[in-house]
């Protein structure tokens, strides 16, 4: 028998949320484009970088970038290029931003995904177990460790891991990305662990709190009083606790993608974090714009994914639907 909550509405839900995401990204792109004007100084000079330009050169730049057109016209032309995959030319290296980013995005994405997977595989089960045995030695030990994990800065953790596992015991490579393929993944293990420690501590806390909150609910007492086995009670609780964990997981992934910079610098990885740092220093505005836009897109898509997952696992959200 069909429920009143038909699953056919999922498609509509996704379409509406997707449209909202596109609108959000357009608004963001507008802000990103405005960076050129928000940066101090003459945009034409900024686009030329730290050269000392002749008036002719400045005029040429103004013509090339249509800097004398109205702001909105410029934006529309720019966003049109972006949609077609043209993000402009880097000022510093004078090559197309897209080709500059291509390899680095893959590396950063690999790093972020690896860190995310490590986080989920380790922190969520630990959080569940700690909540189930709240107050036990296990709970107190892991909780204490998580406080250290949240507090320790990632560059310090990175250096410590480098020293211990890379230099002292020589288990992991200490530098660079290796020869591609599996070797590249192998080189990313230490940086990913470094990232996962801070984030994992956070996810552990969130999971523990979520499960503890569910354990205090009446339905758990009721289930036990009815004679449900501990295993059955556990499934009931985990299904409910999944909802806040998914929400926080999404936030964490979005943070990871934008938060790789310190780790990339520590481990000398050519990811977008390192590129962003260099480009900001150099006022390489097209590159900064591209990275900002990219990060914003990843965050918006993550939020979209979280919404869709929440929609499918929480019947109450499904019932409220698109209202």
């Amino acid at each position: 028998m069909a429920s009143r909550l038909g699953r056919g509405t999922l498609g509509r839900f996704v379409m509406v949320r997707l449209a909202a995401t596109v609108v959000l990204l357009l608004a963001l792109s507008f802000v990103v484009f405005a960076l050129l004007y928000l940066a101090p100084g003459d945009p034409a000079r900024n686009l030329l970088g730290p050269r000392n330009p002749s008036p002719e050169l400045l005029a040429a730049i103004r013509a090339e970038y249509h800097l004398d057109d109205p702001f909105v016209t410029q934006y529309v032309r720019w966003i049109g290029d972006v949609v077609r995959g043209d993000l402009g030319t880097s000022i510093r290296s004078e090559i197309a931003v897209t080709s500059l980013l291509a390899d680095r995005v893959v590396l950063t994405a690999e790093l972020a995904i690896m860190a995310f997977v490590i986080t989920l595989v380790v922190a969520v089960p630990l959080g569940v177990r700690a909540a189930w045995r709240a107050g036990s030695v296990f709970d107190r030990t892991v909780s204490l460790a998580s406080i250290v994990g949240v507090g320790a800065p990632s560059y310090a953790v990175g250096l410590l891991l480098l020293y211990l596992l890379g230099v002292r015991f020589q288990l992991f490579p200490v530098y660079g990305i290796g020869d591609g393929g599996l070797d590249q993944l192998w080189h990313l293990v230490l940086p990913a662990v470094t990232l996962a420690i801070g984030i994992g501590a956070l996810v552990f806390k969130l999971t523990r709190t979520a499960v503890l909150g569910e354990l205090e609910q009446d339905y758990v007492a009721f289930a036990r009083a009815r004679g449900l086995s501990e295993g059955a009670v556990r499934r009931l609780v985990l299904r409910n606790a999944l909802i806040p964990v998914v929400t926080s997981g999404g936030l964490v992934f979005a943070f990871l993608f934008g938060g790789t910079i310190l780790v990339e610098v520590t481990f000398a990885l050519p990811g977008i974090g390192g590129l962003l740092a260099g480009s900001v220093t150099f006022k390489d505005i097209p590159v900064v714009q591209a990275i900002t836009l990219l990060t914003a897109t990843v965050i918006a898509l993550t939020a979209l994914a979280v919404d869709i997952v929440t929609y499918t696992i929480d019947p109450r959200v499904r019932a409220r639907g698109l209202r």
């Binding site: 609910q217 009446d218 339905y219 007492a221 009721f222 289930a223 009083a225 009931l236 299904r239 409910n240 909802i243 696992i313 929480d314 019947p315 109450r316």
Partner: peptide, 11 residues
Amino acid sequence: LQNPFTSLSPV
């Protein structure tokens, strides 16, 4: 239990 709004699992 007393509260039928909380004694069943909501999901």
